Amino acid sequence: MANTAESVHMELQPLLNARKKFYQLLHILFQMPTNNNEYVEICKKGNLQELEEMHEGGKILSGFFQRLSNDYLKKEREEYQRLFLGPGPLAAPPWESYYRSKEQLLFEEWTYQVREQYHQFGLKYVRENNEPDDHLLLELEFMINLIDLCLLESNPDRFIELISCQQHFLENHLTVWIPYFCKRVIQTTNSQLFLGAAMLLEDFINDDLTTLYEVKEALADV
């Protein structure tokens, strides 16, 4: 039985690495676009042609990468501030609580639920209590962290627990608010970078949850 479980775990390594790579890509796409080198690396290693062929958001992002220049990045930085950072009212606030609170407030119950999840894995936001813990980038980082733990885990039972934690976080957080966030981005920007990124993010989060259901079913048969 143990050998079979270990075999399944090894078979899942490519899938885990692919998931991690995609979360990392999304994390870069939703950061302030200050480092041109990161985008150059995506062009080299991001399988953009495959992404362009399989997804409309990938096609839009391809247009962004084809126009990549310092002047173009300056415009994207200005758009990033308008959408996600400020000053002033944000077009698409990047915090979970904003979309789940009736009053569109921050530091609501979902912020503390997410914080508790981080703490369970020994993680703590460096600006805890000063800035909300349920920022998009932090939640993506958390998923990357959980995937890393899966890649290192040799105990089959613990491995299943880590998959369940990812499934829980997707079900109770990311897939709940991300569609509303992405809709705001899509409706309020002409940026190829953020329009394409939002389209990719929404579809990937839902697809990833489906993938984890399939992984859990495969592990249950071991």
Rank of each mutant, 00 (worst) to 15 (best):
V222G: 10
L146H: 00
Q31S: 12
E38S: 09
R67C: 05
E153L: 10
F107I: 04
N17E: 11
D221R: 15
K45E: 15
H119R: 15
Y180C: 01
D148C: 07
G122A: 07
E131K: 04
H55I: 01
Q24E: 03
A197V: 00
S164F: 13
E116R: 13
Y99S: 03
E131L: 12
K124N: 10
W110H: 11
E6Y: 15
H55S: 03
Q81E: 11
Q113V: 07
E6G: 12
Q24V: 00
F204K: 03
V215L: 15
L138F: 13
C150R: 02
R82W: 04
L140Y: 00
C43Y: 08
S69F: 11
N190I: 06
V114E: 03
L174H: 01
Q31V: 00
G46E: 01
Q66A: 12
M54Y: 14
Y118P: 05
L174W: 03
E171M: 05
E128V: 04
L48D: 06
K216T: 12
Q113A: 11
M10R: 15
Q187R: 14
M199S: 02
S191I: 02
K21R: 14
S7Q: 14
L68V: 02
E79S: 01
Y99K: 11
V176P: 05
E108S: 14
A91P: 10
K124E: 10
F181P: 00
P33Y: 02
E96H: 12
I42G: 07
I178E: 01
Q13M: 09
N47W: 06
T111I: 01
A92T: 08
L16S: 00
E217I: 10
V222L: 13
L90K: 14
Q113G: 06
L61Y: 02
K183T: 12
V126I: 15
L162H: 01
L123I: 13
S62H: 03
N172P: 04
K45R: 09
M32P: 02
E108N: 13
L85F: 13
G88A: 11
S164R: 15
L140H: 00
A18F: 09
A91E: 15
N145Y: 05
E217A: 12
E79Q: 04
T175D: 06
Q167V: 00
G122E: 09
D157L: 05
S69H: 09
Q66V: 07
S164P: 08
I205K: 00
P89L: 08
D71A: 11
L201I: 01
F204Y: 15
A18L: 03
L12S: 12
S191P: 13
K44L: 09
L152M: 06
L193P: 01
K75V: 01
L195M: 02
E128D: 11
Q192A: 03
M32C: 11
I160K: 12
H173I: 05
P179K: 14
L149I: 04
E139K: 03
C43V: 06
N190P: 07
L83S: 08
L123K: 14
P94K: 15
L29V: 01
V215C: 14
I60T: 05
N3S: 09
L48F: 02
V222H: 11
E217L: 12
V222M: 13
C43S: 14
L15I: 06
V176S: 09
L138V: 06
Y213E: 10
C182F: 11
R67S: 12
F169C: 00
A18C: 07
A18H: 10
R82L: 09
T34L: 06
L16Y: 07
N17P: 03
E128T: 05
Q49V: 06
S164C: 13
W110P: 00
D71Q: 13
E76Q: 10
Q120E: 13
